Amino acid sequence: MRIRFTAEIYEWSARRNWFFVDVPPEPSADISDRPRMPRGFGSVRVIATIGGTTWSTSIFPSGDTYALPIKKAVLKAEGVGQGDEITVDLDALDG
């Protein structure tokens, strides 16, 4: 399943220097509805792309959506940070 969305980068309030974007509710529901093997914390394996940077990671349930962690190396490579609105291409691999 491939999705594209635009979201604002935010810093996790519980831990400084951890940055995320939220997958919007509709695609999050589509991801959640797909059958898959259970994984830790309800995570789903994904391939994420922002600009010219692609990496493997997992998204994690956060209320009615999923949160995508963004590595510091990605933020630096793409010249983005907290408060910036970015476009994300996401390939959900599980299910």
Rank of each mutant, 00 (worst) to 15 (best):
M1A: 09
R2G: 06
I3R: 09
I3E: 00
I3Y: 06
I3L: 12
I3V: 13
R4H: 03
E8H: 00
E8I: 11
E8F: 00
I9V: 15
I9H: 10
Y10G: 04
Y10T: 10
E11Y: 12
E11S: 10
E11T: 13
W12D: 11
S13K: 00
A14G: 15
R15Y: 04
W18I: 04
F19D: 12
F19W: 10
F20D: 11
V21E: 09
V21C: 08
V21G: 08
D22K: 15
V23C: 02
V23E: 02
V23N: 02
V23M: 07
P27R: 06
D30E: 14
I31G: 01
S32H: 11
R34L: 09
R34A: 05
R34V: 14
P35K: 14
P35L: 03
P35T: 05
M37Q: 15
R39S: 13
R39T: 07
G42C: 14
G42Y: 04
S43I: 02
V44F: 02
V44P: 01
V46N: 03
I47W: 03
A48D: 03
A48G: 12
I50K: 01
I50S: 03
G51L: 04
G51P: 07
G52C: 02
T53D: 05
T54V: 04
W55C: 13
W55D: 10
S56M: 06
S56A: 12
S56T: 13
T57R: 09
S58D: 13
S58I: 10
I59S: 00
F60P: 09
P61L: 12
P61C: 12
S62E: 00
G63P: 02
G63E: 00
A67C: 08
A67R: 08
L68H: 03
K71Y: 05
K72W: 12
K72L: 14
K72C: 07
K72V: 11
A73N: 12
A73S: 15
V74I: 07
L75M: 15
K76P: 06
A77K: 14
E78V: 13
G81D: 15
G81N: 10
G81L: 12
E85A: 15
I86P: 01
I86M: 02
T87A: 13
V88Y: 03
L90R: 07
D91I: 09
D91E: 13
A92W: 02
D94L: 04
D94A: 02
G95N: 10
G95S: 06
